[in-house]
Simulated scan of single mutants.
Amino acid sequence: MADKKDPALPAIDVQAPNLREMWDSTITWFQVHYVQILIALGAAVLIYLALTALREFGKRNRGTRGDPLGYANVLGRAAARTTHYFMVLVAARLVVGYADAPASLTKTVAFLFTIATVLQVALWAREIILGLIERKTLAQDGGGETLANAMGLIRVLVSFALFAIATIVVLDNLGVNVTGLVAGLGIGGIAIGLAAQGIFSDLFAALSIIFDKPFRRGETINYDATTATVEKIGLKSTRLRAVTGEKKVISNANLLQKEITSYFTLDHRRIKFAIGVIYQTATDVAEQIPDILKAIITDLGGNFVRSGFIGFGASSLDFEVEFDVYLPDWDAIYIVRHKVGLAILRQFNDRGIEFAYPTQTTFTSAPDGRMIMPYAEVQPVKRVDLEG
């Protein structure tokens, strides 16, 4: 019974090389074209030595000379990844192309040269991409601490993508129909992405934090009702230390969906005091209160912004003062606020200005509407002399 071929499978014409024929044709080629071969070999040796020198130059200059964040360093890293296999095949390809080699030998060298070139380009591309990523991150961050958390993941993703493309290119040059393979990889990637959607969302959120830098390690940020200092940016979650001491852990994707307030670049803090005085305060004294508050702020080194009357309270005449303190340390700002509060209390006490507090006065009326005391008048008790 004849074998049935599956029409869905690619037709690959695989023929074993005729080694005897290749050997005979190669010997004949050497005998006829030995002059061209010697010239080509000399040129091949020079090309190999030039590539070797370029490779060694890249090894010596990657991160040891010049700007470690410069493009020359990135190119040096890529040049250092040049393999001897690629350099040998470049020289061999030149020889067979210049010296009119037999078809079988030319085809074999061309096949090996194609594989070597594709793999070498993948290595160069990987080093250049990773170098540019490190350059961008280190140039903006300086310490590169957050980059170390994701560099392993980035290296795996870049390597997988580049070598998958290289494999497809090699198979395509061999005559393999790679359409089904590409479709299978695409479907497999979609399935994996859907299955691990939550994990990948946090991973890419971590990369977004590293490169976009909405905040960095050591910054104090606020989201929702939480104010905390960033301790570690991981691949899955970010760990923070709240100002009240608790350890907070939140997924990267969830954190980026929130409105984040960072206090890292804040060069000053604005402080407000709400002050209420009693309604019995004289008008001329009330008019002096903003000037009194301004003088207190100026004497204590604060940057006065504004002060004035803001409203009639239930039990007080309400004033407000605003001022800025240009200090980076919150503890120092806290001390300034403390001193300002005590100075206001001292000044008001010295001037006889009374602070208001919640009070309530009750008035009682008689049946005819006359205001009377809140309690009934008591008739005096007539003393009786029992001894008389």
Rank of each mutant, 00 (worst) to 15 (best):
D6G: 06
L9K: 09
V14I: 01
W23V: 13
W23G: 15
D24R: 10
T28G: 15
T28I: 07
A43I: 13
A44C: 12
I47S: 10
A50V: 13
A53D: 04
A53L: 09
R55A: 11
G58R: 14
R62C: 04
R65F: 07
R65L: 07
G66Q: 07
L69T: 11
Y71P: 08
Y85P: 00
L89R: 09
A91Q: 05
R93L: 11
V95I: 15
A101L: 06
T106A: 07
K107Q: 02
A116G: 03
V121G: 10
E134I: 04
G142L: 09
E145G: 15
E145T: 15
N149Y: 05
L153T: 10
A166W: 13
G175Q: 04
V176W: 11
V176I: 06
N177Y: 15
T179F: 12
T179A: 12
L181F: 02
V182Q: 03
A183K: 15
L185C: 05
I192E: 10
G193W: 05
A195E: 01
Q197T: 09
D202R: 09
L207P: 07
S208R: 14
S208E: 09
E219V: 13
T220V: 15
T229C: 07
E231L: 12
R239F: 07
A242T: 04
K248N: 14
I250K: 09
S251P: 04
S262P: 13
R269T: 13
R269P: 15
K272S: 11
V285G: 04
K294Q: 08
T298P: 01
G301Y: 01
S307D: 02
L317I: 11
F319T: 01
E320R: 00
V321H: 10
D324P: 02
P328S: 02
I333R: 08
Y334Q: 00
I335T: 09
I335S: 11
L342D: 01
R346L: 01
F348K: 01
R351M: 02
G352S: 00
F355E: 11
G369N: 06
D385K: 12
L386E: 08
